[in-house]
Nucleic acid binder design. Sequence first.
DNA 1: TCCAAAATGTCTTTTAGGAGACAAAAAAGC
DNA 2: GCTTTTTTGTCTCCTAAAAGACATTTTGGA
Lengths: 222, 222
Amino acid sequence: MAKNLDQFLLSLEPSEEDAFRENAMPLVFKKNHNIFANGDNPDYIYYIEKGRVTIYRLTKDGNTVTVAIRHPGELFGLAEAFMEKPRKCFAQAIETTSVLAVRTEDFKNILRIIPELSIKINMVLANRLRRAEGIIYDLINYNVSGRLARFLLGLQEQCGRICGTGVVLDIKLTHNDIAAIIGSTRQSVTQTLNEFKDEGCISIEDKKIVLLNKRKLQQKVY
Amino acid sequence: MAKNLDQFLLSLEPSEEDAFRENAMPLVFKKNHNIFANGDNPDYIYYIEKGRVTIYRLTKDGNTVTVAIRHPGELFGLAEAFMEKPRKCFAQAIETTSVLAVRTEDFKNILRIIPELSIKINMVLANRLRRAEGIIYDLINYNVSGRLARFLLGLQEQCGRICGTGVVLDIKLTHNDIAAIIGSTRQSVTQTLNEFKDEGCISIEDKKIVLLNKRKLQQKVY
DNA sequence: TCCAAAATGTCTTTTAGGAGACAAAAAAGC
DNA sequence: GCTTTTTTGTCTCCTAAAAGACATTTTGGA
């Protein structure tokens, strides 16, 4: 089992992977393009080969609430495929993204044929549920500064790339994007990021955040 | 399929239910007793026959954050059973609660033997994930009044009992309990509930909340 | 290369609601 | 029934951070 439970294909046996790929259709979405929308029928589930995708909902006044970001090796559009209801969220490519799309019906059939795969999906969903509960906890418990610090530290697992000075988070996010994830505003994110910068916790290189002092960043969480 | 995806046993075929019950050990927990704790190994998963259970985490300063409430017919301790890590939350009986406990290993074996069951667990987890994402959305989007109104309206599904004047929510929660669920404080909950009462949205009977005017309550959500 | 659009930086004002303090009421235990 | 503990009601004060306004910088597209 891969250490990251969300790394779906990595966790499969060759025969399982074949069954998955046989039913898959490769697609490419350009940056900012929508992959599915609120109200759509969940006809497909998707696997990310390359790129990243935000899963978000909209508020009445048009603001975005990001409920998850999906990274290479992860599935998305998954949970809703198990329900007979239209989607409640949008999926949009953050960067140019290559996916494998599998028809929901085909996917369910694979699960029936390969029970072991179904158990792996259980693990993926269970892991995501626990993470979602962690976000709920964070929202209730930490202030903007704490949530931002935790978000950055958490990103390491999926985007972290060690370089000389620290850990580069290999994803380009605007302050607005981050605000939509941690439940804050663009202005507050700008300000708090600059505080972190001034104190030497982070730096920005090529529009990407670099974690310079993780311990100090961890102390921002209270 | 039962309309409530979380009603686990109801959704099973007789043969599946037998397989489940054969491996189950009945237990009774009195009000306020802990069923499992943070740090425990997830050796068992539980099915609620009667009673209700809170799933919560603790903050550094001892406050409670409730991540879910489980009702009769639902499983709990489930998600963590699929991971090889200690539990991150507590489970406590809100009222006297009868459960069926199944060893995690046995449960996984049942899933292997009965693939259809595994798919049903997928549906339960998927549904919970979507609900958790809904809570994240609520926390970011609605104020205390809105969150409280949505919480009460949402409880109908699991606790609602129609009576002459309206819908009784068949669960006794203190204002503190509610605050831990909607991410607020005891004082704010007291005050907001009284506002709802004054405006005729709700009333209290036998320590239980009665929804008198659902439409008016819905208008509190903004 | 230039221009329009998007993103960032930095003010200032405003307010929801957290948090403390204490009295009153209700419930639980003996 | 009586006492202790829990829960509720209602103040007050105070701060984090939302939200608006606008200048500046950066970016991406033609």
